[in-house]
């Protein structure tokens, strides 16, 4: 299951509001920065009056900086716990347990650039151990990443790992409105054909107004003019009110991406309704889908059985009947393993 979780102290380096109720917190914790794999989470004890709120809060690791011993989380203020988090300042300390859970299964790129193990339902490679199995075939294999709201958090870390492995991606990012788009600037910017990125030699279109700061910067490493041949990293932005990017639902854009073919796997994180639709589209287009789920959680370690999600037949076949634990069997599952109708 990857690195053993450890309860340790993390120091707040930065806690910045990046949208209405949306925050980005950068934390110093060498162990998590070194050990977390994409899709894993940290279980954060809320500092406040003693034991109130009682339980830890889980947050996906959004980005790691191993050289700085730091990592990022994104969060939205939705209750007392996150409200308290939002008041923390640089230098404050947090009790953080992690890294926890099973991460995303990475697309393996073999010598022929084929799909490798994706979609075979084998969960043999735990905690994202598949990462880094890279061959040739750069630029030909592509995956889709689908984020709804702050569901973008685990996918950002995943997008970096995918990029490093030489696989291209189309990152479809959705939110209710443009101001709720958080973390766009954290996506690898070695992009061609990116409608958002003005200054990209591959795409001279100006950026839409209202993009979070940083997203309009010329992408590092993107140099189509001089013959950039790395994997394509395309970002598509969709908002329900049309304030930024395409107007509509993130799943509308995903449907077009999948219809275009050549997508080997889709990774999704966001609201329950979005995940159900992504799973449906995956089935329709025969694209395997991995979803990152959230659930009310107590121990975070797999012991209390509180964060149950009903298993579907695909999981039962591998001997995991009944209920699965979001914290330990997930938070990332193949869509066909879990009953998505029962979540949210």
């Amino acid at each position: 299951m990857g690195s053993a979780p450890a309860a340790s102290t993390a120091i707040v380096l930065e806690n910045r509001q990046v949208g209405p109720g949306c925050y980005r917190m950068r934390l110093e914790n060498e162990y998590i920065a070194r050990c977390a794999v994409p899709g894993q989470f940290v279980h954060v004890r809320i500092p406040g009056p003693p034991l109130d709120p009682l339980l830890r809060r889980p947050f996906s690791v959004c980005q790691v900086e191993p050289s700085h011993g730091a990592f990022l989380i994104l969060y939205q203020v939705v209750g007392r716990g996150t409200r308290m988090l939002s008041t923390l300042r640089p230098g404050d300390k947090l009790d953080v347990l992690g890294p926890l859970g099973r991460g995303f299964e990475m697309l393996r790129v073999g010598g022929g650039g084929n799909e490798g193990s994706v979609g075979n339902n084998s969960r043999e490679s735990e905690g994202g151990n598949g990462i880094g199995s890279v061959g040739s075939g750069s630029g030909t294999v592509k995956v889709a990443l689908v984020a709804g709201g702050l569901g973008i958090a685990p996918l950002i870390m995943l997008s970096h790992a995918i990029f490093r492995s030489g696989v291209g991606f189309v990152f479809v990012v959705g939110a209710r409105s443009g101001e709720l788009l958080a973390g766009l600037d954290l996506i690898p910017r070695a992009s061609c054909g990116n409608a958002l990125l003005s200054g990209c030699p591959a795409n001279p279109e100006p950026a839409s107004p209202g993009i979070v700061q940083g997203a309009h910067l010329p992408p590092s490493g993107c140099d189509m003019a001089t013959g950039y041949t790395g994997p394509c990293c395309e970002v598509q932005v969709v908002t329900e009110d049309g304030s930024v990017g395409r107007r509509g639902l993130v799943t509308d854009a995903l449907r077009d991406v999948l219809a275009g073919g050549d997508i080997a796997c889709a990774y999704a994180c966001g609201p329950a309704g979005m995940l159900r639709e992504v799973a449906r589209l995956g089935e329709a287009f025969h694209v395997p889908v991995q979803v990152s789920l959230e659930a009310r959680m107590a121990c975070g370690l797999g012991a209390c059985l509180g964060c149950a999600v009903k298993a579907r037949e695909a999981a039962t076949r591998s001997g995991r009947a009944g209920y699965l634990r979001v914290c330990a069997d997930g938070p990332v599952f193949w869509a066909e393993e879990v009953d998505l109708d029962g979540i949210g």
Binding site: L51, P53, L55, R296, A298, L305, C307, A308, Y323, G342
Partner: peptide
């Protein structure tokens, strides 16, 4: 063997935790 109850199984209360596993 018992499958347990359908979710939700947890509910946080002030300084407490309700469970129905």
């Amino acid at each position: 063997p018992r499958a347990g109850n359908p979710p939700p199984r947890l509910w946080e209360t002030p300084c407490g935790l309700l469970n129905s596993v």
